[in-house]
């Protein structure tokens, strides 16, 4: 397969991967909603960037999708299921199809790089196989392929705590892709990294998800990075969506609306 011209999945499959968020509310403390009536439809392709000031609910929104945070009310429809209402085994099965990349990588520091990548398959394995490290050979082969894809083949058997920040985030990306997800969430994937590494990581997420046709939703502080890699930008402020459109449509006035003030834009 030529990476520059990936085979596009059918429209029907895109439809199944479409994420519908309807009237989503989240209150951590009663009477203080962090998300106020967020409704969004995110197509099953491309990279969607969510921008907005700290504390505006971007992270909460993304975490509601895979239920690391439980929404107070509202619906999240994905692959024909309302994720907001799932529990137990059903929730775990839904989570298997949703990869996530974290701001602080969230690797298991004392495990090796390859073990961390294989953690992406835990939803499919009985616990004794994970415990005895009896992963299916096909999974192990795919884990090595993914390490090649993120440029870490040489570090496979090193412990994760010996890697640099950028390298750790590459492991995080490989772990998420190991799930063969239908949706990739990234919660501030570059906020703990230096500017150069940030670009490399965004490039890697966009490229590897793009060639596998995985839709991506990424929270990001850096507006320039968002404009450079996103197909669609969602601007949030005060717990609601205040901008939604292609990067070219994002104007000065929108940024003032999203972040407030204007001295910082000079």
């Amino acid at each position: 397969m030529d990476a520059s011209a990936p085979i596009k999945s059918s429209a029907a499959e895109d439809g199944a991967r479409t994420l519908h968020i309807r009237h989503l509310f989240k209150e951590y403390r009663a009477g203080q909603p962090v998300l106020r009536d967020v409704s969004l439809t995110i197509e099953g392709r491309g990279l969607t960037a969510i921008i907005g000031p700290s504390g505006t609910g971007k992270s909460t929104l993304v975490r509601c999708i895979n239920r690391l945070v439980d929404p107070t009310s509202g619906e999240i429809i994905f692959r024909g299921q309302n994720l907001a209402g799932l529990r137990g085994r059903e929730l775990r099965h839904a989570r298997r199809r949703i990869g996530m990349v974290f701001q602080e990588y969230n690797l298991v520091e004392r495990l090796t790089v390859i073990e961390n990548v294989l953690c992406g398959r835990l939803g499919y394995l009985p616990v004794w196989r994970a415990w005895l490290r009896r992963f299916p050979p096909a999974d192990i082969a795919r884990a090595f392929d993914l390490l090649d894809a993120v440029g870490l083949s040489a570090h496979a058997t090193q412990r994760a705590d010996q890697l640099s920040g950028g390298q750790r985030q590459r492991v995080g990306i490989a772990r998420a892709l190991m799930q063969e997800p239908d949706l990739l969430l990234a919660d501030e994937p570059t906020s703990s990294l230096d500017p150069k590494t940030s670009v490399e990581i965004m490039e890697l997420i966009a490229r590897r998800a793009g060639e596998r046709d995985i839709p991506v939703i990424v929270n990001i502080h850096n507006v320039d990075l968002a404009k450079r890699y996103a197909d669609r930008i969602i601007g949030m402020a005060r717990g609601t969506v205040v901008f939604d459109g292609p990067p070219q449509a994002l104007e000065h006035s929108h940024l003032i609306d999203i972040y407030g003030g204007e001295g910082w834009l000079e």
């Binding site: 775990r92 989570r95 298997r96 996530m100 974290f102 990588y105 992406g120 398959r121 772990r175």
Partner: peptide, 13 residues
């Protein structure tokens, strides 16, 4: 709790 959160997110039991 960070790795715990990450592994829960993969659908692990």
């Amino acid at each position: 709790m960070k790795p715990v959160e990450a592994l829960r997110a993969t659908g692990a039991s």
